[in-house]
Structures are given as C-alpha cells and as structure tokens.
C-alpha cells in the first residue's frame, strides 16, 4: 500500500486536514474519511453527477478528482449550503417545487444548480437544461427540477 499523503484544504469554509491514499478519490475522502455523505456515489466514473461538489469555484464530479488533489484548495459541498436557521434559496425552491422524489440525486443537482447560478444568475430554460445535463435523475423526469432552478434564479 502506498504511503498516505497529508492534505490540508478548506471545506465549506473550514480548514480540514486528513490523510489519504493516492488512489482515494475526493468522493471517497468526503464520504469515508470526513463523513460528509451528502455527495453520493451513483456511478464512480463521472456519468451521473450525484457526487457533484464545487472545487475552487468550479463544478466537478468528486469521483473524478483525487483526494490528494485538493491540497490547498477550497471545496463546497451540500452540507455547507444552508445557514443554521435558513435553507439556501435553491434548497427552498427544490422543496417548494417538489423537485425531488427519492432524493439521491438531489445534493448533486443542487450543487450543480448553485454553480450555474453563481455564473449565470438568470438562465433560460435551455441554459438550465444544458448545464444540468451532467446530472442524472431517474425519478422526476426533470420537469420540476428545471422549474425549481428557474424559480431559485428568479428569487435571488
């Protein structure tokens, strides 16, 4: 087994240190080492987007990033989105629009939507669909998800 490396990073605004094997993905580190299980594993090869997190302002599939790669960087995950007494407007919009059924893809969609709205606060329906095409949902048919993201954009 290769030697573990020491990684210092910022996650949801907090400085975090951990040891990880070179082969461990960011998703594994988040889930198994840091117990941040909001990012989900649906495919482990970048196809489903359930593990979406924001790394230095850029949306990534955390299963395609190595844990060691985030040294010195900043990661935003679903766990950091809400304030202690207030949900993020995207989270509110998902609830108001019933934009989730089983909910396994929801954290990924919300992080993906956040990355979109951070860049483009007033997307068209087509822009939302184009941006979210990297996130798979099998329950909703996407209708209510797209509406939720458009509503969240209008609300902010």
């Amino acid at each position: 087994m290769a030697r573990k490396s020491h990684v210092q990073t910022t996650i949801n605004g907090e400085t975090v240190e951990f040891l990880c094997e070179p082969r461990q993905s960011l998703l594994e580190v988040l889930r198994d080492e840091l117990h941040l299980t909001g990012a989900k594993e649906g495919c482990n090869n970048g196809n489903c987007g359930a593990c979406s997190v924001i790394l230095d302002g850029r949306l990534v599939n955390s299963c395609l990033v190595l844990g060691a790669e985030i040294d010195g960087k900043s990661v935003e995950t679903i766990e950091g989105l809400a304030e202690p007494d207030k949900l993020h407007p995207i989270q509110d919009a998902f609830l108001e629009n019933a934009a989730l059924q089983c909910g396994i893809c929801t954290p990924g969609f919300i992080m993906s939507a956040k990355a979109l709205l951070d860049k483009n606060p007033n997307p068209t329906e087509h822009e939302v669909r184009y941006w979210l095409a990297g996130n798979l949902c099998r329950c909703t048919g996407y209708d209510k998800i797209v509406r939720a993201v458009l509503d969240a954009a209008a609300a902010t």
Binding site: R31, L36, E41, I78, L100, G103, I104, P107, I110
Partner: peptide, 15 residues
C-alpha cells in the same frame, strides 16, 4: 423528509 434530503443529511444505505 424534505429538509433532510436537500441538505445532504438523509442517511441512504451506503451512508
């Protein structure tokens, strides 16, 4: 169960 599911706190099998 909505808030748990939009905040990533809901515990699924693998979690």
């Amino acid at each position: 169960d909505g808030v748990d599911k939009v905040t990533g706190r809901a515990i699924y099998g693998a979690d």
